[in-house]
């Protein structure tokens, strides 16, 4: 079992309840998309699965470990097995792409090796191999501040692929890419996860991409799971319930509420914070 949540809740220090009593099981090698409106708790859930946050209620099991019980070296060992792709990868602007990618294996490297690699990249070939399928091999020695948002996202993906994690988490991994590139990148992520037999959990805003690339889709709204089923079983009704917005109800009922129209409405009217 790769991931298991039993009644997991998370309340932020300010008192905001981001997640409420989630029960969820994801088997090893499964590929799951999480969809839901902005503020549904997708990022919080992924940070929880990435050990960046601890649940305030319930039990969490990751790769057969309870991260809240682990300290020091054992926690670090678990963390090297989990890779999180950030929506906007936090890379130092002046860092070279090769260094940023090689940083993925810092958890496995000894400190002397890490410091030596900082002066002279010790495994440039490994970094190139991780960048190659993402079409970025020619940017190996470019500086991160010379890249576009979409290129940075792909560097972040390359870093996690280089890390070689058993559990791959992705928070809006293609949000800064054009549709064709986003499609290509998601297909690549799914293919690699399939080949390596690793678990992939990704949050996505583009519903069509989620339904097309992932066998299983979870709908998250207000910190609760609304539906959790195979992508082929997701109905328009499910999606309307997931994205229904009281302030947009009038606008949505006027034009026949296709998903695309609904999404466009959301993008145009709902305040976005990313």
């Amino acid at each position: 079992m790769s991931i298991r949540l039993d009644g997991v809740g998370l309340t932020h220090p300010g008192g905001f309840r981001a997640l409420e009593k989630l029960d969820l099981t994801i088997a090893a090698g499964e590929r799951v998309a999480i969809i839901g409106p902005s503020g549904a708790g997708k990022t919080t859930l992924l940070r929880l699965l990435g050990t960046g946050l601890n649940p305030s209620a319930g039990r969490l099991s990751l790769l057969d470990n309870d991260p809240t019980q682990l300290r020091g070296r054992t926690l670090r060992t678990l963390r090297t097995r989990i890779g999180l792709i950030h929506q906007s990868p936090p890379l130092p602007p002046r860092q070279r792409v090769v260094t940023a990618v090689l940083a993925g294996r810092l958890g496995q490297w000894s400190l002397p090796r890490a410091l030596a690699s900082l002066c002279y990249p010790l495994d440039a070939e490994g970094a190139r191999a991780a960048l190659e399928p993402l079409d970025l091999a020619d940017k190996l020695y470019a500086r991160c501040d010379q890249l576009s948002g979409g290129q940075l996202q792909r560097v972040g993906i390359a870093r996690v692929l280089y890390q070689g994690a058993d559990l791959l988490l992705a928070d809006e991994p293609v949000s800064a890419m054009d549709p064709v590139l986003a499609d290509h990148t998601l297909a690549l992520l799914n293919r690699i996860a399939d080949e390596r037999g690793i678990t992939l959990v990704a949050s996505l805003h583009a519903v069509d991409l989620a339904l097309r690339h992932f066998p299983r889709v979870i709908g998250l709204r207000d910190g609760k799971i609304l539906f959790d089923c195979a992508a082929s079983d997701v109905t328009d009704n499910d999606l309307n319930g997931l994205y229904a917005n009281d302030s947009l109800l009038g606008a949505a009922s006027e034009s026949a509420p296709t998903i695309a129209a609904l999404q466009e409405n959301l993008i145009r009217t709902a305040p976005r914070c990313f």
């Binding site: 989990i82 958890g107 400190l111 994690a165």
Partner: peptide, 9 residues
């Protein structure tokens, strides 16, 4: 922090 979350010292 991101590197710490990926297991770096």
């Amino acid at each position: 922090q991101a590197l710490r979350d990926a297991g770096a010292g």
